[in-house]
């Protein structure tokens, strides 16, 4: 099983990178967005630049590669009629799907690092992380949480064609609603509950908290708990969707219908 997972990750990382569009998402797009963001925030304090430019553009990179790409990967498989073949292969579909998502996550992480390095070296942004170890833990937690969210989304998109059409248009709304480049607090009150139902909001919040000098513990704990809670919710939703997809494939035989 583990071997199958690693194999999927390895193969999938290669396949993804072979697509020019994915190369753009990983290598080029974050640099464009980071540059635009740093120009917009040019006269802001270093801390704000770290929170909104560095973390913000890094998160855009993560979001595009993990969630967006994973969902469209499944869609592509369906389009080429290979989804059913994968589904009936002896390796559980979940393993393959998770393998794909982890593959994209690794690329996404590299892309995030790239945009950090780019901003630090080209724009001389200085990064001071008060507690690197905690920050690292937080990053791992965040990656895990996004993987879970992505697992859920890919399956949800498999279930509905309407959702699938939507997928291509949720990129910027998510940047907006989850506050990638500004605090969620500036959004209208009625938008904020939606923001907090989405893991990226909590995830970026957490990273901002752990990178703030003498941040208060209450805020830090609440963002850890918040992320944990939404992650659990999406684990459950993911499992439900997985069952539904399985049912659709095996009982109704409709998975390949495009």
């Amino acid at each position: 099983m583990m071997r199958a997972l690693f194999q999927t990750i390895r193969v999938h990382m290669g396949i993804s990178m072979a697509r020019p569009m994915f190369q753009f998402i990983i290598w080029a797009s974050p640099l464009f967005l980071a540059t635009i963001a740093i120009f917009i925030y040019s006269s802001a304090s270093p801390e704000r630049i770290f929170h909104y430019v560095i973390l913000g553009s890094g998160f855009m990179a993560l979001w595009s590669s993990i969630v967006f790409s994973s969902a469209s990967d499944i869609n592509r498989e369906r389009f080429y009629g290979t989804l059913e073949i994968i589904f009936v292969s002896p390796i559980p579909f979940a393993v393959i799907l998770i393998g794909k998502i982890i593959g994209n996550t690794i690329w996404g992480f590299l892309s995030m690092v790239l945009s950090f390095v780019y901003l630090v070296f080209i724009f001389r942004v200085d990064i001071t992380i008060p507690n690197p170890f905690t920050f690292l833990l937080a990053i791992i937690f965040v990656l895990f949480s996004l993987t879970v969210f992505s697992f859920f989304l890919s399956l949800a998109f498999t279930l509905s064609r309407q959702a699938e059409a939507l997928m291509n248009f949720i990129e910027y709304p998510i940047y907006l609603v989850c506050g990638f480049m500004f605090p969620v607090a500036i959004l209208p009150i009625w938008v904020q509950p939606i923001s907090y139902l989405l893991p990226p909001t909590w995830a970026i919040e957490l990273l901002r908290q752990v990178s703030t000098e003498n941040s208060n513990n209450v805020a830090l704990h609440s963002s850890v708990l918040g992320l944990l809670a939404v992650t659990l919710v999406y684990i459950v939703l993911g499992i439900i969707c997985y069952r539904a997809v399985e049912k659709k494939a095996r009982i109704y035989g409709k998975l390949g219908v495009y």
Binding site: P20, M21, Q23, F24, A28, S29, F32, T35, I36, F39, I40, S42
Partner: peptide, 25 residues
């Protein structure tokens, strides 16, 4: 790779035109 080139163009236009910041920056 039409999509790739198109996206690079789109991003470049967004970046260079200065739609979101004064050009002086």
């Amino acid at each position: 790779s039409m999509n790739l080139i198109g996206n690079i163009l789109a991003s470049s236009l967004l970046l260079l035109s200065g739609a979101n910041y004064p050009q002086s920056i």
